[in-house]
């Protein structure tokens, strides 16, 4: 079993800029690399990587592997996998970190299988076992009801980190680092899937993931119409509307509204939940909110164990009063 060297972060530079999820990985990676006494590097895939490479260095990467190829201009799973497989085989990293984004959640496991190793999916935290110098990954399991601490038995040890689990590493433009070009041999015929159309259906206004205030509705709303009340409150406070999976599954709002384990991970300053019971699968997507407010008629609902402020009552009475009062207070 080769031990490998270095901590490699699989970066994201789609759109030419370093993604915030990569800056988050750099925060996680800096700690792991220093505890292991290893170098921290970032792999960037694309066709114009110069700006993102410098940003990665400013955020703490000691080395950037620039995998430049015209076929990597857009994300395509088979081509990205082929490039990453070649890179990992060449440089034999000890640890590989990837963000559990839509792309990372499929790239990570498939890369691990290709390399014949295990990987830890959707981790909240990674650390280093002081005695064995192995990576320890904390990951929620059973929908967030439990936390498993796992380690990978082979090398590289691969972990996918949940977006927003780490604060992004601070940028320091005076940092110096090396950009190494890594040529890959790719062929368009390696791509086995083709995107033939893209349909956007997100709500207008501030993106759910970026909103400072989010108002979410759940099963207890009983239908799609009440979401108009949530929209009204969100509009007054400059926020965005989200939903629990139950509301999405009932067809009341599109799936892009879903907050939770299999939906979006959000970290707003204020999260107002309306008629949401607060199952662990939902909390998995919002537990990073600074303040959670619960409006629910069931005093025993789990959401009251997670919320900072709670009102036990029917949303039909509470919400209009809350909205009217906030309007009065903020516009006075």
């Amino acid at each position: 079993m080769a031990d490998g060297t270095g901590v490699l972060i699989i970066g994201d530079s789609s759109g030419g800029e370093l993604a915030s999820t990569t800056a988050e990985l750099l925060a996680a990676g800096q700690k792991v690399a220093s505890e292991l006494g290893e170098e921290l590097s970032v792999a960037l895939l694309g066709d114009t990587l110069d700006a993102a490479a410098q940003q990665a260095i400013a955020h703490g990467a000691q080395k950037v592997y620039a995998v430049n190829h015209p076929l990597l201009a857009e994300y395509q799973i088979d081509l990205y996998l082929a490039a990453l497989e070649a890179l990992c085989k060449e440089i034999s990293p000890q640890v590989v970190l990837i963000a559990r984004t839509n792309e990372g959640r499929e790239l990570g496991p498939r890369l691990a299988f290709r390399l014949g190793v295990g990987m830890a999916q959707d981790c909240l935290e990674v650390s280093v076992d002081a005695s064995e110098k192995r990576l320890l990954a904390n990951r929620p399991v059973y929908g967030g009801n439990a936390i498993a601490v796992v380690s990978c038995d082979q090398t590289p040890q691969i972990a996918a980190i949940r977006p927003k689990a780490y604060e992004p590493a601070e940028a320091d433009p005076s940092r110096q680092g090396e950009v190494v070009s890594f040529p890959v041999d790719l062929n368009a015929s390696q791509a086995r899937t083709t995107v033939v159309d893209t349909v956007m259906e997100a709500a207008e206004g501030v993106k759910l993931e970026d909103a400072r205030i989010v108002v979410s509705g759940g099963r207890g709303l009983g239908g799609p119409e009440p979401f108009a009340h949530l929209e009204e409150l969100a509009k007054i406070v400059g926020g965005t509307v989200g939903a629990s999976r139950a509301a999405v599954d009932s067809g009341w709002v599109p799936s892009s509204y879903q907050v939770g384990l299999t939906g979006k991970t959000i970290t707003p300053d204020l999260y107002i939940t309306v008629a949401i019971s607060g199952a662990s699968q939902h909390m998995a997507g919002c537990s990073g909110a600074k303040v959670i407010v619960a409006i629910n008629k069931d005093a025993g609902a789990n959401i009251f164990k997670e919320a900072r402020y709670g009102v036990v009552g029917d949303w039909e009475s509470v919400l209009p009063a809350l909205t009217a009062a906030i309007r009065e207070l903020t516009q006075a």
Binding site: V195, V196, D197, T198, V199, E201, A202
Partner: peptide, 8 residues
């Protein structure tokens, strides 16, 4: 994240 894509 903000909709869907059609993939073949």
């Amino acid at each position: 994240p903000d909709g869907y894509e059609v993939v073949e």
